[in-house]
Design a protein around this nucleic acid. Structure first.
Lengths: 135, 135
DNA sequence: AAGGTGCTTTACGTTAACGTAAAGGTAATG
DNA sequence: CATTACCTTTACGTTAACGTAAAGCACCTT
């Protein structure tokens, strides 16, 4: 059976972030863990949300954007106006993801080129260390 | 024949950024345009660098990181120490790009799911406008 | 010469996403 | 029962990447 709950520091450690960060996400309305007395208890769902926040961050999403995506999870209670703005945002995000895919491809090529140049420069670097050039 | 030079506002307009931003990149050591008197003149190469900066930003690179990548363009004048740190950074950046690729795939799936939910919600939304429910 | 256009420098302001410290509650442990 | 470990709130501080004036030069036009 899976562990059903997590403490804040467990999550912080698992994801390599600080507890301050997790509390900040809560302040921003992205998480709403239960409480045991005054202590926060995180459910597997909270943990998933946290993972999604971090994935968003790796893709350059702001916390506000991630929150909107979370709000979109059940759109049934949104007005027509709201829903259309959701659809527009989804479309824009999709476009920017496609752009990122193109950017990654060309960036990977550039990084590879840079790597070759570095390796070449290293090959031509006479060791300036005291080991002696025994060849 | 290509236009050989650009003014700051030409570049700003082309890339949809402000002149302040371009000057800021210069302050940060990413650009070094020539001068005509006190005015900046940008070469095709400057324009390319600007494009690379913006591509980097779309992928979450900081300006400092982009500058290092620029510094890496001719690594011949770097120490062994320097070169090895370059290689390490290139490796890390590569890893994070691969991670971003995975993130984009799953994010695209999630966005598509959200789109379906939104469309569904829209379909079930009785027009609250005054057009009358003529069916 | 008066005004407009587009550039310049200088400098203070702003926002997101936390960092960091202070002061204190509570539960287990020696 | 005092210490340790882990949690809490409150609040001010920090950094990157610009935004936003303010004040002025240089050239062109009317």
């Amino acid at each position: 059976m899976n562990k059903r709950t997590y403490t804040i520091s467990e999550l912080a450690q698992e994801f390599g972030i600080t507890t301050r960060t997790i509390r900040f996400y809560e302040d921003e309305g992205l998480l709403a863990p239960l409480r045991d007395g005054q202590r926060r208890i995180y459910s597997p769902r909270d943990r998933t949300l946290l993972k999604l926040i971090l994935r968003g961050k790796r893709l350059g999403f702001s916390l506000a954007e991630s929150r909107i995506l979370f709000d979109m999870y059940d759109p049934a209670n949104g007005s027509r106006q709201q829903l259309e703005s959701y659809l527009q945002m989804l479309d824009e995000k999709n476009n920017s993801l496609e752009q990122q895919l193109r950017d990654i491809k060309s960036m990977q090529q550039d990084l590879e080129d840079a790597r070759v140049r570095c390796l070449d420069a290293l090959k031509n670097t006479f060791s300036p260390n005291p080991c002696g050039d025994s060849a």
